[in-house]
């Protein structure tokens, strides 16, 4: 596979936009600028998504807002013969440590706390770095984008845990587990941040870099 043109001396590579073309992000097919829909996969074409950053910020803020009740309110409502207890996300992790399930506690902690918070910071950073100078170079930022897109869905683990526990543990009076309000707000927070990451147009990372030269 060879590169086309030598217009950009430093890299020897040109973008579809510089060649007066628009590329389909879904299938890679190239069209004349101004074409509305991809002839190959029928997807909508946009040389650059002008509203990309707006969408990114809107979904991201929605995700962050919902993450707050997700951590304050209980995720699991447990009723047993002896006691009735509510546990939050962090409470669930502490409980697992108490049972000496360190590995599982780590998985839940990483999936429900570290990944969401890391994702908020990473997406905000990528969105800001498109408009400003960045300490990470374009390759590092592109890797960060790929990682954020890949890892986001794994935050859903805790929601599934709650769903399975509440379906499984329904033993009349002996023990029952029900989902708390945090389960729903956490699920929505993850969904909204996934939308945020998907709205980001990675081509902006590379464009910003060209303007700075």
């Amino acid at each position: 596979m060879g590169s086309i043109g030598q217009s950009h001396a430093s890299t020897g590579l040109i973008t579809a936009r510089e060649a007066g073309l628009v590329a389909c992000r879904r299938c890679g097919q190239v069209h004349a600028l101004g074409t509305q829909n991809c002839t190959r996969c029928h997807g909508a074409l946009q040389s650059r998504d002008a509203q990309s950053l707006q969408k990114v910020w809107a979904w991201l803020i929605a995700g962050i807002v919902l993450f707050i009740p997700a951590n304050i309110y209980p995720m699991l409502l447990t009723n047993t013969l002896i006691e009735r207890s509510d546990s939050t996300i962090i409470g669930g992790v502490v409980e697992l440590i108490h049972y000496k399930s360190y590995g599982i506690a780590l998985i839940v902690f990483v999936a429900s706390i570290m990944i969401p918070i890391g994702k908020f910071i990473a997406i905000a950073y990528l969105a800001i770095s498109v408009q400003q100078q960045s300490i990470l170079n374009m390759h590092q930022r592109h890797k960060l984008y790929d990682f954020v897109e890949f890892i986001g869905r794994w935050s859903m683990i805790d929601v599934f845990v709650v769903a399975i526990l509440s379906a499984l543990v329904q033993l009349n009076t002996i023990a029952s587990i029900n989902p708390g309000i945090a389960a729903l707000s956490f699920a929505l927070s993850v969904i909204f941040t996934m939308f945020s990451a998907q709205s980001f147009d990675p081509r902006l990372i590379w464009d910003a870099d060209r303007k700075n030269r």
Binding site: T15, A16, L21, A23, R25, V30, W206
Partner: peptide, 10 residues
């Protein structure tokens, strides 16, 4: 031609 869906390079 194929354009990279990540960085638009032709």
């Amino acid at each position: 031609l194929i354009a990279c869906p990540h960085c638009d390079t032709l």
